[in-house]
Design a protein around this nucleic acid. Structure first.
Lengths: 254, 254
DNA sequence: CAGTGGTCTAGACCACCGT
DNA sequence: CGGTGGTCTAGACCACTGG
């Protein structure tokens, strides 16, 4: 039964299912090496291309990694970092220090957090001007923070401010902001008292995957936070998080 | 330059990049048909397998659909439904009628929502007993709601209740609950006053993909909500949402 | 160095679907 | 019916990596 067979399940599905079962059952554990492509060819009596179709499938599901050279393929580990983004006991939490949720999230987990900050002035990109209530081509300040864990990129937070609001403030400088950007704006009379989070997911573009060092099969989690003073938006933060590393937690009163 | 070439970008990447560019630029719009595999072979002078590698890549990125028979492949549409899960003006919103956030979300979008409810009594699955503060093998009631839009599955909400709390209530019946499950529990003295949402994402398992009718390249959004009376958990809802259809919105005071 | 995965070709049969 | 994508094989060369 060689070629385009039948109403049965495709061979590469059979192989993929078998491997998936071995992973789910614990026979193959996170970190373990998978059998070689050659071994799988022999084990299931199929061609290499068919084995590779199966392996590609599992990769796209995020179950295994690719593997170059002698390294072989490995069962992927899924270890989520919890980020508390809202907490009804301390309302200030969600709007506090610029990066405290990030820092707190990894605190005490043996991770060594760091970040790289870039600041730019530009015309508001698509969707941001609208959210900030500005004209389509208005100037905004973009603070881009690449967050690293033990040197590995794991999320990108891009904050946009109306230029007129933050010019001549430390927000324009690519350094940590004492008491956070929100606190700094508060000192200048813009006291944020409300924010809206939009959470969504999709597969990354190749460029986004490259920036986060993402391998195939890992989706990204998007969190877009708009901060308001009453009804005036003063800040939009667009955060892109590796889906295999993050969990957002909202704790709220009913 | 036939086989395993070079330090350049792989051929299938070149083809994928070209198609991606045509999609991003608007040359190919959502709903349009892609060129045939044969046409792409001719256009880029590569073998069919190489063309298919490129197309598989774009599929895994969620940019295009598969396509059988004469139907051809199509550029995918990404249209998000907004679900307001928390709203500081109406704290009751997030905990109100069992399915009001779902119904409200699609209200007035020309969608025709419906749902299929199943109820079962079983031992608490992994992670649920813990969240409910029950013994490992305690009995729970599972209310599973498959939510449909115009007949298409788009999310699955599984609610777990301690059996002792809800036996002999309408929660055990596979019908809509008047005033919602939360309201019903409140009438019986269990007034939920706090909840915690955990949001994460990953690629679906084949079974999950089948249940939601998901094609490759579409991640799922997970929302796990634990409802409390003070510190006693009374309900856990695990919602699995198609990533290409949903956006969760949390509106909060600072 | 030796073995692994990465890339590529040429050719084949079949299931499905619109016309 | 005829063309599309789905599945599969056999064989080839190369790049990368660990020992």
């Amino acid at each position: 039964m060689p070629a385009g067979t039948v109403g049965e399940t495709p061979l590469y599905q059979v192989v993929a299912d078998a491997l998936r079962a071995r992973i789910r059952s614990g026979d193959l554990r996170p970190g373990d090496r998978l059998p070689t492509e050659h071994e799988l060819m022999a084990e299931y009596g199929v061609s290499r291309n068919t084995v590779r179709l199966a392996l590609n499938l599992l990769t796209a599901e995020g179950l295994i990694t690719g593997g170059r050279g002698r390294a072989g393929r490995v069962v992927r580990l899924r270890e989520l970092i919890t980020i508390h983004v809202a907490h009804h006991d301390e309302p200030g939490r969600g709007a506090g220090n610029e990066d405290s949720p990030f820092i707190e999230a990894v605190h005490g987990h043996g991770f060594r957090p760091s970040q790289e900050i870039e600041v730019a002035v530009r015309r508001a990109p698509d969707g941001i001007a609208e959210k900030l209530g500005l004209a389509k081509d208005a100037l905004v300040v973009l603070r881009s923070r690449l967050r690293l864990l033990n040197g590995d990129a794991c999320s990108i937070a891009d904050s946009y401010y109306p230029y007129e609001l933050v010019k001549d403030t430390p927000i324009m400088e690519p350094y940590d902001i004492k008491r956070g950007a929100i606190g700094l704006l508060a000192e200048r009379g813009w006291v944020q008292n409300r924010y809206v989070d939009e959470v969504s997911t999709r597969m990354p573009s190749p460029d986004e995957a490259r920036r986060l060092g993402l391998s195939p099969g890992i989706p990204v989690l998007f969190q877009i936070r708009t901060g308001y003073v009453d009804d005036k938006p003063i800040r939009v933060t667009r955060t892109m998080l590796r889906g295999d590393r993050h969990r957002l937690v909202y704790e709220l009163p009913s």
